[in-house]
């Protein structure tokens, strides 16, 4: 099974998704760092950082941890 059932196309597609997600995550992290450096402190910074962290969490939950499989076991990512 291990070698013969190897569905190369599907695997490549899934791995591609991972690369896209990590790219967005990296950008978001850099954005976080950049706004922290530029704004310094205050409620605006806290709000923006919260938004960025929630966005990152959503990406990881959705694509890396396959949250949708909870209610849709066969589908999702």
């Amino acid at each position: 099974m291990a070698a013969t059932g190897h569905n190369a196309a599907a695997e490549a597609k899934a791995q591609g998704t991972g690369l896209k997600v990590i790219a967005i995550l990296a950008v978001l992290t850099l954005v976080e760092y950049a706004i922290a450096v530029t704004i310094g402190k205050g409620p605006m910074l806290v709000t923006l950082l919260t938004v960025a962290a929630l966005a990152k969490t959503w990406l990881i939950l959705q694509y890396f941890m396959h949250l949708p499989k909870l209610w849709n076991p066969d589908g999702g990512h």
């Binding site: 190369a8 899934a14 991972g18 990590i22 990881i60």
Partner: peptide, 16 residues
């Protein structure tokens, strides 16, 4: 996290 994701996907497709 990316490498972990790639590992999971690889195992799912038998790419041990």
């Amino acid at each position: 996290s990316l490498t972990a994701y790639r590992a999971e996907t690889a195992f799912e497709h038998g790419n041990v």
